[in-house]
Design a protein around this nucleic acid. Structure first.
Ligand SMILES: [Fe+3]
Ligand SMILES: [Fe+3]
Length: 965
DNA sequence: AACAAAAAAAAA
């Protein structure tokens, strides 16, 4: 049956009254669509999506419990798409457009005017009405109410939120909204006629009896919901499915035409990667002759090959062992086994997502089994500012005129961003996506159109990078999402360099939907080894395997240093006497600025350059800073590529945590504040990262041994007292545990000498991480009392975080047969756009981002002067929307306001004052770069006052705020 | 009355 047939069969089966029911209307053009037409469009679209677009593993999941498997799955899906708007065949809906209502009245469907129906109408929105009608119809066909509700809720939820029981009761209590006045049964006859015709057109009549006892698993129900929503959205796109201007408009081939114009990309049909690990990796990543596969990579592919069912693979290995490549190859194999049609890689930040996006696209380009072109998506809020993403060709065509041109243009295949597969809710439906972990965690947040987010991940393999980097709050979401992924049989690859054993166990338990602390998972926590692979398949026994390391090591001499800026300055003077580059990592921006100030004083006129790096810069400056760091301290190839050079004179970079993240930069000497031990290790990774001459002989003589000075605590106390700001950021307990783990490690090394010792990377990573995060006491006995107290209050605090996270947390999958009624109830909706009403997948206090602009002395508004590449000082219009080009610069001039301006007792005043700057002309829809953004306008000296504070911005030091009182 | 980095915000 072709995709165009559904509407024809419907209209043939309906009488004049049934055909008179309308579904869509456009006030501007006066165009409209009858319900039967929208039913046919939606069904045809759903059938096409089932055949050509859904990943095999999604089809399998939907069909799992149905007696005839996928044939039943397709029938059920197409039928639900067809009947999704049956609730429009009610007085409550039909009365809304008087002209169309009048046509229905003349067919005997009596109803009052919209005004006569009054406010009650909102008690029976058409989704909910549809659920009630469908459930009643199924009951008439011999179904139990319970069985009917699991199907009905798909219709009830087609606008994103399945109704609650109470809502359904309220609607039922107003019979006249659904069935008109008690004196007529015309409405019920038409509703039955439409549903009967739909059942015949979808050939489901003969299957209804066999389906009635089925208990649909919730994953199937959610995926059916999502498919109905996607079909409806496509069928409701008026440029694909134009409205009619007259009754009886001929529309032959309308569905096939629309689907051709939509031009969804071809799927990836993954094949098992064949051959040796060496060959597979070399082919996927275009390795040159000399590159050898690493032991972890080889083992990861072997572990994936050993899993004969979809499962979770945890890869723990040090930075620089090719974990990402290992994950992608494992993902390819797992995709072929499970029938995935794509891959999502989740990362902690937008910056790492951007970097991953290019790698993912390269990898996807090398895959076999991609027919036509595949769609790629960069999933985070600032993707539009990323040139790698926006530079991609766009596939498909929004207007019919473009179809021919595009069909010619995209014949070459390859990767493209698809015009329809973009935006917050649809973008993740693309085949290959890289993005922030938030995009994955949203699948665990009760919110509108949640089913779409589930469909987006249910068809893929999911890779979770930097799994150690998430806090208790986010982990609460992650665990719930993993439970759903396990239920969807979505293969998952988890990556980490520093994963606490307890967390490893929790991840595996979550995915397998096992109880916390299930004894089968003891081995996952107790196993020792690094690198380490863990594989888990729901219902099976988890496997663990230690892997040989690849051999690169760095010995780091560790020394404790008092927390005194002057002492630090004196020390650096000595250390850098013979040249060299030092990195000083501070835990707060305040300390970064304070340290930089002292050092600049000290080194003024000596040729020693001091610079800062932190996140309190506008995006464009931050990107420049990162580039400058890479051009000076990156690996030789990168330095050459960026046209930079490693400084000859001594250099000091004072940085916040931005330096511990993804940047591949290398210093001769490291000074760091005491931080949680995984972060200390991460920072140590910036030390002698690249080989510079035999035995590091190209480094200054005194700095050829890697050395790390740890400060940011009063080491004289027992236990050491971490800096107050550090405690605020990281909490006291993890800092004390870090100090204790280091102490235990170093004193074991050299027999009780607590002045310092050696940490070997990567050999000591596992021991330090497990020591710091394990359950056992660690550190000197005199510290234990303090540690015990810190542990207790930390436990309470973390439990509170987990509790907060649960406020909008989705439940794990319920028993099969439980309908989706109330699935996202008490959720956040998406109507509340005020900064405060938004529930989050991250636990953060208030924050405000502003666009930093400048006003010249002559009163003209401009972009910030001094921005690189000629972006600075460009005039901005105030009475109309800025151009595309300048708007983008303004949007990339965002900076987050520091704490003093967003403290709970200040933020309201700050927002009030910033709202004074809003430009009405910039709120227009053609001002999409800047609409809704708060503007902070600086004077010609880059200063301003805000809420009683002095605000100052420099390209050198970023945003500084001082109390102006 | 103290604070990293981090994310995000349109449907049928
Ligand atoms: Fe609808
Ligand atoms: Fe619809």
């Amino acid at each position: 049956m072709s995709y165009d047939e559904y509407a024809r069969e419907l209209s043939a089966a309906l009488g004049a009254a049934g055909r008179s029911v309308w579904a869509k209307h456009d006030w501007d053009s006066g165009g409209w669509l009858p319900l039967w037409r929208h039913m046919g469009d939606s069904a045809g679209t759903a059938a096409y999506l089932w055949d050509e677009w859904l990943a095999p593993q999604v089809r399998a999941r939907i069909s799992e419990a149905l007696p005839r498997g996928e044939a039943d799955g397709r029938r059920l899906a197409v039928w639900l798409a067809m009947v999704h708007d049956i609730g429009k065949a009610t007085p409550a809906f039909a009365c809304q457009v008087e002209g169309l209502a009048e046509a229905m009245r003349s067919q005997g469907l009596k109803m009052g005017s919209a005004a006569q129906m009054g406010k009650d109408r909102s008690l029976a929105p058409h989704g909910m009405a549809g659920q009630l009608l469908l459930v009643a119809w199924l009951q008439d066909n011999g179904w139990s109410k319970r069985a009917a509700q699991q199907i009905g809720a798909v219709v009830g939820g087609h606008h994103g939120v399945p109704p609650s029981d109470a809502d359904l009761q309220d609607a039922l209590a107003h019979r006249e909204l659904l069935y008109g006045s008690a004196s007529t049964d015309a409405w019920q006859r038409v509703q039955r006629e439409l549903l009967d015709a739909a059942a015949s057109a979808c050939r489901i009549r003969e299957h209804l009896d066999a389906w009635s006892p089925v208990k649909l698993p919730q994953p199937s129900q959610v995926l059916l919901s999502a498919l109905v929503i996607v079909s409806d959205w496509i069928a409701s796109n008026a440029s694909l499915y134009p409205y009619f201007q007259r009754t009886g408009t001929a529309a032959d081939g309308r569905v096939s035409r629309a689907l051709k114009q939509l031009g969804l990309p071809g799927r990836w049909r993954p094949r098992l990667p064949q051959g040796s690990a060496q060959d597979v990796f070399a082919a996927r990543f275009s390795w040159d002759e000399g590159t050898r596969v690493r032991p972890v990579q080889e083992a990861a592919l072997a572990a994936a090959r050993a899993m004969d069912e979809p499962g979770m693979l945890v890869i723990e290995a040090p930075m620089g062992e090719g974990k990402t490549e290992a994950a992608l190859v494992a993902a390819e194999h797992m995709a072929a086994v499970s029938g995935a049609g794509g891959c999502f890689v989740a990362l902690p930040t937008m910056a790492t997502s951007n970097a991953m996006f290019s790698r993912l696209a390269d990898w996807a380009g090398s895959l076999e089994g991609i027919d036509g072109s595949a769609s790629v998506f960069l999933a985070h809020s600032k993707a539009a500012l990323n040139d790698d993403y926006t530079g991609l060709p766009f596939a498909g065509a929004e207007s019919a005129d473009d179809v021919e041109r595009d069909a010619a243009g995209s014949r070459g295949g390859g990767l493209a961003a698809h015009w329809w597969l973009r935006g917050r809710k649809k973008g993740m439906l693309a085949d290959f996506a890289a993005g922030t972990i938030d995009q994955l965690l949203f699948a665990g947040l009760k919110s509108r159109h949640l089913a779409l987010r589930h469909l987006a991940v249910a068809g893929k393999v999911v890779v979770i990078d930097e799994a150690h980097a998430y806090d208790t709050y986010m982990n609460t979401y992650l665990d719930t999402v993993l439970a759903w992924l396990g239920a969807y049989r979505v293969p998952v690859v988890v990556l980490s360099a520093t994963l606490p054993a307890r967390r490893r166990r929790e991840l595996a338990e979550a995915y397998c939907q096992a109880r916390r602390g299930s004894p089968e998972f003891d081995a996952v926590e107790k196993v020792q080894g690094y690198p380490l692979l863990t594989s888990a398949v729901p219902g099976g026994a988890p496997q663990v395997e230690a892997v040989e390391a690849s051999g690169r090591r760095t010995e780091v001499q560790v020394e404790y240093l008092d927390d005194d800026p002057d002492a630090l300055a004196r020390r650096l003077e000595t250390e850098l006497a013979g040249g060299g580059c030092a990195l000083v990592v501070r835990n707060t921006v305040k300390r970064v600025h304070a340290t930089a100030r002292v050092l600049r004083d000290r080194f003024a006129g000596t040729g020693v350059e001091v610079s800062v790096a932190h996140a309190r810069f506008v995006d464009l400056d931050r990107a420049d800073k990162d580039r400058e760091l890479l051009a000076a301290f990156g690996p030789p190839a990168t330095v050459a590529e960026l046209g930079g050079h490693r400084p000859q004179n001594p250099r000091i970079v004072v940085a916040s945590q931005v330096a511990e993240q993804s940047l591949d930069i290398d210093f001769d000497l490291l000074v760091t504040d005491l931080a949680p031990v995984d972060l200390v290790l991460q920072r140590m990774g910036r030390l002698h990262r690249h080989l510079r001459g035999q035995g590091q002989s190209e480094r200054p003589e005194g700095l050829r041994t890697a050395r790390c000075l740890i400060t940011g605590a009063d080491w004289g106390q027992q236990p050491p007292e971490p800096d107050a700001g550090s405690q605020f950021v990281y909490r006291r307990y993890p800092l004390l545990r870090a100090a204790a783990a280091l102490d235990a490690h170093l004193s074991a090394e050299d027999g009780g000498n607590t002045i310092g010792g050696t940490v070997v990377l990567p050999d000591d990573i596992d021991r330090l991480v497990q020591g710091a995060y394990g359950p056992d006491p660690i550190g000197p006995s005199e510290w234990q009392e303090e540690l015990g107290q810190a542990r207790e209050s930390h436990g309470i605090e973390q439990a509170a975080k987990a509790d907060q996270a649960r406020a909008f947390l989705l439940n794990p999958p319920a028993k099969p047969g439980r309908s989706l009624i109330g699935w996202v109830n008490a959720g956040v909706g998406d109507t509340d756009d005020s900064p405060r009403g938004r529930a989050q997948v991250r636990n953060a206090g208030e924050s405000l981002e502003v666009l930093l602009l400048q006003r010249r002395r002559d009163g003209v508004l401009t972009t910030l002067s001094g921005l690189g590449e000629g972006r600075g000082g460009i005039e901005l219009p105030t009475d109309f929307a800025p151009s595309e080009e300048v708007g983008r610069i303004a949007a990339a001039s965002a900076v987050r306001l520091p704490f003093p301006l967003v403290a709970p007792w200040v933020i309201d005043r700050v927002i009030d004052e910033l709202e004074q700057n809003l430009l009405p002309a910039w709120q227009d829809k053609d001002a999409h770069w800047v609409a809704g953004e708060l503007l902070l306008v600086l004077d010609e000296d880059c200063r301003t006052r805000l809420a009683g504070f002095d605000v100052h911005y420099t390209h050198q030091d970023g945003l500084e705020v001082t109390d102006g009182h």
